[in-house]
Each structure stands twice: as structure tokens, then as C-alpha cells.
Amino acid sequence: MTALAASRGGSALAGLSTALFRRPRLTLLLLLVPPLLWLGVIYLGSLFALLAQSFFSIDEFSGVIIREFSLATYREFLGNAANWDIILRTVVMATAVTLGCTAIAFPIAYYMVRYAGMRMKGLLYLGVMLPLWSSYLVRVYSWKLILAKEGIVSWFAAQLHLTWLLEAVLELPVIGGPSLSISYLGTFIVFVYIWLPFMILPIIAALERVPASVIEASGDLGATPGQTFRNVIFPLAMPGVVAGSIFTFSLTLGDYIIPGIIGQSTPFIGQAVYSHQGVAGNIPMAAAFTLVPIVVMGVYLSVAKRLGAFDAL
């Protein structure tokens, strides 16, 4: 049998193919071992090693890490009101960025799926992906120039005689500031810009699975376009929105560069982690901060599941 198969294939490679064809379990094992090693050992392993560090504590005087189980770090972490500020600020920003990305991504994705011709669709895909080809830092710094006090936005506002509007926006409490580049609004704008592709692509994938006939059926049964959107299109696109929001939400939760360059220089979670493990050398505290995005995402996904976001999967 083997000789026959090998002679047919005419090479050792064909013989190997035949051998694997007859042992599907072995083939599966060979395919799964590399990713399982990567995910199980390198990725999850390092994550748990990091989280385990949060149960160590730091000696306040010597700055030496005491490698014994203790909840001292968490006691300090949760007892500090400034830390709660950081968490609240980051979660609110991540929520706002996710909503902003959804609001902008949905119409683009819908247009690309339902209306754009092949050529237009290709161009739009390119437009969505193109920013990802250039350096993240370059893009963030260019936004600094765009949003600065003498920057492009204020120049345009002046040309359009809308300086008063820009100033009114900047005078708003909390989100305003001396200029767009030194305000939460500026941080928000740049976050939305940077993470937008990660929202558009999953929504496109979800909308492409909605048959045109289902949308027609809704109209046929008397639903106006608005009712069709609320009752059919949006619920069916929900898994895509949730997938996109996992990106935008968790990326915002962990980012430490954008709020450092654009905004009010008040710290976000990412910056807190960065400074605790770097400047302060307080790795247990940095590890404790790392737990926050994980818990927040866990809560978010379980709420989304309970609200039926994955029913259309």
C-alpha cells in the first residue's frame, strides 16, 4: 500500500502527505502545537507571571521587592484616591472613544458593504488601512501640530470665521482646555482617529453576513428605513460592533503614548503602569494596575453577552 502510494506520488514528500492523511489526529496535533505553545506558555505564562507579581510587595524604605504572598500592594492600590481617578478617567475615555469610533465607523462600513462598487470599495479599504502603514508615533505627533494653538484646526476656524465656535468648545468644562492639543477633547479625537480601522473592519465583516433580502423583508413588512436599522441591521451587526469595541476599548485602556503627547498630562492607566515599573521600580503596583483593564474587559464582555450582543452570531 505504502509502496503504491509513494510510487504514485513519486517523492518522499508525497509519502509524507499520505502518512499524514492516514493519521488525522497526528496532523491536528502537529498543527496545534506551535500556537498552543505560543498562547499557553509564552502569552498566558508571562501574563500570569506578571499578575503574580501584584501579590508581592515593596519595602517602602529600601525599595526592595519582598517576594512573599501579600495583599499589601492591593491595599495600597485601592486605598489611594488618585488611583481611582486614573481608573475612572481611563474607563470614561475608553467608553467615549468606543462610542465615537462606532458612530463614525458604522456609516462607512455600511456604505462599503451595501452601496460601494468594486472600485470604490477597494479605494475605501485602502483609505481605512493606509494610516496603519505609517508609524503610530509620527501620526500622533502630526495630530499635535494639527490641534495646537497655532495649528491647522485653529487656522481653518479663523478662515471660516468660526474662531468663536472653537473657543466656545474649548471653554466647556472638563473636555475643554487652553487648546485642542491640551484638552481631553484632543485626546479623544486622536484616540478615535488611531483606533478607527479596528472598528471599521469588524463591522464590515458583520454587515457582509447580513443578506440583502433580510433588509428588503423588513421594508416589505412595513418598517421604515429607520425602523429597519433599529430592529434588523444594528442587532445583526452587533457582534461586529462588540468585536470592534473590544479593540478600541482595550487599546485605549492600555495606551500610554497618546495621553502623554496630547491632553492635559493627567495620567491614564497605561502611563501609571509605565511610571510604576520604570521610574518608581514598583513592579507589584504596576502589576496591580494591569489587572484593571483585564477586569474591566471581563465585566464588559459578560454584560454584552447578557444583553444579547452575541445572539446574532
Binding site: V214, E216, D220, T224, N231, V232, L236, A312
Partner: peptide, 19 residues
């Protein structure tokens, strides 16, 4: 428009709302 017409359709692929 379709939603203002007093006709209803049974679609070839049924077009049931999956959710």
C-alpha cells in the same frame, strides 16, 4: 416605497430574521 405598499413577499431564501 415598499413599506408603504399593501403587499407582502415570501422570499426565495425565506429572509427570516436570524436574531
Amino acid at each position: 416605497p415598499p413599506y408603504a405598499r399593501d403587499v407582502n413577499t415570501v422570499f426565495q431564501d425565506y429572509a427570516l430574521f436570524p436574531h
